[in-house]
Design a binder for these strands. Structure first.
Length: 270
DNA sequence: ATGGTTGGGGTCCAA
């Protein structure tokens, strides 16, 4: 009686379908949420997922950029997607699944790919940064209007914000680097209150511990230099968080052949 | 302070 849910920015699901197979074999998630699938729905390698036992897929893709998907061993009762900021980007998909130990109300899973926000942390000169801030604001107001608190829900994905000092290799060096600026951290804080959402990863890895889920491709010595950031998150409403058993971040996947720059994060519920 | 790498689609943009 347990459920394992994982999230992974795969940076092209077609190119890395083999790495997904390896991850699934080694860690056996029941539900796998992917970001940056980078292909149209018709191009999604559904056969690979079906052959691994993920009979139920909710896909929101687009050509070339972004794209999210949820692969599930459990039946998907229904799926939804929302076009945050009305730009036509495929950055959200959600499903509901029945989980016996969570009771009668289905579990809702939201999978997000929040905009990276470009290089310059100033919306006047960098519209991509403005888009990121607006996206976070819209998530906050949308969840605030959902009245989530009594239902079991999980929010996962590449949120492209590392909120804590221990979510980055150097708090000081990254204060003006997009992903760790005070305005992004403040907006993420408001988003967390909108559930309220509990940061499941930090339930098991206390805030005094450094932990990362992403290492840039631009660092040839990613492991030695270890200039990582925790951009990928798993959050839960209290009725789901009650059942949290374990959290793991699979750093080894960053060292696999032709890796994604992100590694998978997983929670076990029981 | 700077430049470093990757993927997709096509000779450049987003990350």
């Amino acid at each position: 009686m347990s459920l394992k849910i994982a999230t992974w920015n795969i940076n092209s699901v077609r190119l890395r379908a083999g790495l997904v197979e390896r991850y699934v074999q080694e860690h056996q998630p029941d539900i796998l949420c992917l970001q940056e699938t980078k292909c149209r729905d018709s191009e999604f390698p559904s056969g690979v997922f079906k052959s691994m036992g993920f009979d139920h897929l909710a896909i929101n893709g687009q050509k070339g950029y972004h794209g999210v998907a949820i692969a599930s061993r459990l039946p998907i009762l229904d799926m939804d997607k929302r076009d945050f900021c009305g730009m036509g980007d495929a950055r959200h998909v959600s499903v509901r699944v029945k989980v016996s130990f969570l009771g009668e109300i289905p579990l809702t899973i939201h999978n997000f790919y929040v905009p990276a926000g470009g290089d310059e942390p100033d919306r006047q000169i960098n519209p991509k940064f403005g888009h990121k801030l607006d996206f976070l604001d819209e998530m906050t107001s949308w969840f605030a209007s959902c009245k989530l608190v009594e239902a079991p829900a999980i929010l996962v994905g590449d949120l492209n914000v590392a909120p804590l000092e221990t979510d980055v290799w150097s708090h000081k060096a990254l204060l003006s680097v997009v992903s760790h600026t005070p305005i992004e951290v403040a907006k993420m804080g408001l988003l967390q209150k909108s559930g309220p959402w509990i940061d499941a990863v930090r339930e098991k890895f206390p805030a005094d511990q450094k932990i990362y889920s992403w290492w840039s491709y631009r660092s040839p010595n990613w492991e030695i230099a270890d200039k990582g950031r925790r951009l990928d998150h798993i959050w839960m409403t209290p009725p789901a968080a009650k059942h949290l058993q374990a959290v793991s971040i699979h750093k080894a996947a960053r060292g696999w052949e032709r890796p994604s720059d992100h590694v998978p994060s997983m929670v076990s519920l029981a």
